[in-house]
Nucleic acid binder design. Structure first.
Length: 744
DNA sequence: CGTGTCTCTTTTTTT
DNA sequence: AAGAGACACG
């Protein structure tokens, strides 16, 4: 496997030490082959994977590692385009539009074209456009099927949508890749430069690649052809995003002299887990031929739990973890709870909260997705790129400053007529004269304000600038003055955003506004997976790919959940769901728990649910059944019994709070309730954090949220983040500095 | 022009 | 069950 030159494909099954192979390969190139690190490019799909790879390589080769480029497809392309995009007529100050920007822009385009968005939803239209871009088809190449009216409309929209993007000097996610390819193909100079720069190219998770990404890699490596890709077709779970599993299976056709290696030994999981996972995945057609095996002990049998409803399912999961934490002093960081859709996390969260077990949601509703954060980001984008009318439109009347729908109509029609950026139109006296006096002032004040803010960008540091924008625009002050509870929470988030900017300023190599905006657009979460070490992790199956945990709970194994009902019509999609199930199962190192409910409440009404067909793949002698099966004996430990009694009640933190308190103040002492002989929290061993005056388990009082309990404390470069559970307001992350907490 | 209420959809997964 | 958008009122 020391084959370093020429194309190489490595099939790396789950748990086969894939990252290790990649990083050792890089180390080998540097140490044994004397390849300069800056000639190596490692491409991944997620920032998490890129970070991990960079860290692991650094462990092996030290400082040198910082000179190699490890990043995502999107960040790599963004970097190329900022540096050399002008060769293909792209302004280097372009803005990156994320998912919701894209949707808004499609909506705008639809209404400009007078297309009924009821009949042709923005989502569907955008999906068509995105697919086209993934196939490297521009608006003229895009070929709608004759009998498909949606696609015919999509073509019109696509053309207009691109014109708008260009007018705003913006690129969407798909454009980044597509134009990266264009750059390499159309600019001989750029092509030569990048081909010479990167003598060795490595691609992780190759099974998730789409055609545009494939073309990028092919163009980049066509000179030296030193390409090494790693992947596992059984873990291809991004087909819905344009990933084409055939690209990994056809690697040897694309690169006829390729050498292929298979890593089939699993170092991660117990024998029984591997066996069960294999029983599931073997039902898929058209897999590359391989079978995982392991030297590890068989271990415990995976447990299948039959729950009555999702409440009881959550209680079982939490009860199980709770018991382990108390009895075996287990580490909460050893546990992961995986589910198909984000919405399923809620009930589990509530139940964990009741049991006072620290947890962390990975992914999910992202910090940067909150409306108030998007507002502030829109200010920054509009200030950075004055052509970005989409962002400008978002904030022109936020906070309300008297520029309503009527005024916008006038402005918009001028934008259309003159084909000028909205901001320029706001500054044109001949336009604003058409407005009433109050509106004229409103627009002029806005224009001046933006001008004043922009002029300060140069002189201020990033943090100061963000601070200035947030106050100078009156955005934050208005939130603070409003007196409404949710506005106060928004204000907190805005302040946290300032902290994020400060953190970025001190940690990034290039603490400019440009690089901060790019960071925000391309990085998914603010506190991604920081504390996976010390708390129970909750995440979707998709987010779990690439991770491993000693103990894994996979919940909601029901028909229409996993496999998801949206995939039911298409056998290929069912196979993807099966792979998803496989990915989930193979995250487990020691113990695997699978559960399903007979009833589940969705959209407010309760439906009967059949167990997932994937459970049916598991032979009875490999697994252990628990829970309410018609024929099965009810298996419950006494501990579990008392746990369920406790959590059966409605969200009532008071008793838990007092128990937590007593457990903390007199460690090892009998808790308040004699017949449930366990303290509610046993976290001292694994999470000894205290921050300033606060410790986990403390009761605290917040000016707005009332009394709550400190659930966890996360040290952070910007100050400690205290996570507090409030009975009324839910879980809040607060910065120790700002929170204004008192001991209760 | 801004705000509050009512209806209606929404939930698959994400760089 | 909750959030977003439409609509009517002040």
């Amino acid at each position: 496997m020391q084959a370093t030159d020429g194309p190489v494909l490595i099939f790396a099954g789950a748990g086969s030490g894939k990252t290790r192979v990649l990083t050792y390969r890089v180390a080998y190139l540097i140490h044994e082959q004397d390849v300069a690190p800056e000639h190596i490019l490692a491409v991944t799909f997620t920032n998490k994977a890129a970070d991990e790879m960079r860290e692991r390589i650094e462990e092996l080769v030290g400082e040198d590692a910082t000179r190699l480029w490890a990043g995502t497809f999107h960040s790599f392309c963004a970097r190329m385009l900022r540096a050399d995009g002008q060769a293909i007529d792209i302004e280097p100050t372009f803005t990156i539009y994320d998912e919701s920007d894209q949707r808004t822009l499609v909506k705008e385009t639809l209404s400009a074209l007078n297309i009924d968005s009821e009949q042709y939803s923005p989502e569907n239209i955008h999906w068509e456009i995105s697919q086209a871009k993934n196939e490297l088809q521009g608006p003229s190449d895009y070929a709608p099927a004759r009998d498909n009216p949606l696609q015919r409309e999509a073509q019109r929209v696509y053309r207009a949508y691109q014109r708008r993007l260009r007018g705003n000097n913006a690129l969407d996610f798909d454009d980044l890749i597509m134009n990266g390819v264009r750059l390499l193909q159309e600019s001989a100079q750029a092509r030569e430069y990048y081909q010479n720069q990167y003598h060795y190219v490595l691609v992780d998770e190759y099974q998730d690649i789409n055609f545009a990404q494939f073309s990028l890699i092919r163009s980049l490596t066509e000179g030296h052809r030193n390409l090494c890709v790693v992947g596992d077709d059984d873990q291809s779970i991004y087909g819905w995003r344009g990933a084409n599993i055939r690209l990994i299976l056809a690697f040897e056709e694309h690169f006829p002299d390729a050498r292929t290696f298979k890593l089939e030994q699993n170092y991660r999981s117990t024998g029984n887990i591997i066996q069960c996972a294999h029983e599931v995945i073997k039902h898929n057609q058209g897999r590359a031929d391989k079978q995982m095996w392991t030297d590890n002990a068989p271990g415990n049998e995976p447990v299948v739990y039959h729950a009555v409803n999702e409440q009881e399912e959550a209680e079982w999961v939490v009860g199980r973890i709770h018991t382990d934490l108390l009895v075996d002093e287990a580490d909460p960081g050893d546990y992961a709870i995986l589910y198909r859709t984000n919405a399923m996390s809620r009930i589990i969260e509530e139940t964990l909260l009741q049991a006072a077990i620290a947890y962390e949601i990975v992914g999910g509703t992202r910090f940067y997705d909150r409306a108030e954060i998007k507002d502030v980001v829109a200010y920054l984008k509009a200030l950075y790129n004055p052509n970005d009318s989409l962002s400008l439109r978002r904030i022109i009347n936020r906070p309300t400053r008297g520029i309503g729908a009527r005024t916008m109509q006038v402005l918009d029609s001028t934008v259309q007529r003159l084909d000028k950026p909205l901001l320029d139109v706001c500054g044109m006296p001949e336009v604003t004269e058409q407005l009433r006096l109050a509106q004229q002032h409103a627009v002029a004040d806005f224009y001046d304000m933006m001008d004043a803010l922009r002029s300060r960008c140069e002189e201020l540091s990033l943090r100061q600038f963000v601070q200035e924008v947030v106050t100078g625009s009156d955005y934050l002050p208005r939130l603070q003055q409003s007196g409404r509870a949710d506005d106060a929470e928004r204000a907190d988030n805005v302040r946290e955003f300032i902290t994020a900017a400060a953190r970025f300023e001190s940690s990034a190599e290039d603490p400019s506004l440009e690089s901060f905006l790019e960071h925000i657009s391309l990085i998914s979460d603010i506190d991604q997976a920081e504390s996976l070490e010390s708390t129970v992790s909750l995440m979707t199956l998709h987010s779990a790919k690439g991770l491993e945990f000693p103990q894994v709970f996979l919940v909601g194994l029901e028909e229409e959940v996993l496999p998801h009902y949206r995939s039911m019509g298409d056998p290929a999609e069912i196979e993807e769901e099966r792979r998803l199930c496989y990915v989930g199962m193979t995250r487990a190192q020691q113990r695997l728990y699978l559960s399903h409910c007979s009833r589940r409440t969705i959209f407010g009404d309760t439906q009967h649910r059949e167990p997932s067909r994937f459970l049916g793949h598991l032979p009875d002698d490999l697994i252990q059944h628990e829970g309410t099966m018609p024929s099965a004996r009810r298996v419950k430990t006494p501990q579990l019994e008392s746990e369920m009694e406790m959590t059966g009640r409605r969200l009532d933190l008071t008793s838990i709070l007092s128990r937590a308190k007593s457990a903390r103040s007199q460690p090892g002492a009998e808790p308040s309730s004699p017949e449930s002989p366990e303290p509610a929290v046993k976290r001292e061993k694994t999470e000894p954090h205290t921050a300033g005056d606060y410790s986990v388990g403390d009761r605290v009082k917040h000016s707005r949220f009332g009394e709550g309990m400190v659930v966890s404390i996360k040290p952070d470069s910007a100050g400690d983040i205290i996570v507090v559970a409030f009975p009324d307001a839910g879980i809040k992350k607060l910065l120790a500095e700002y929170a204004g907490l008192e001991k209760a």
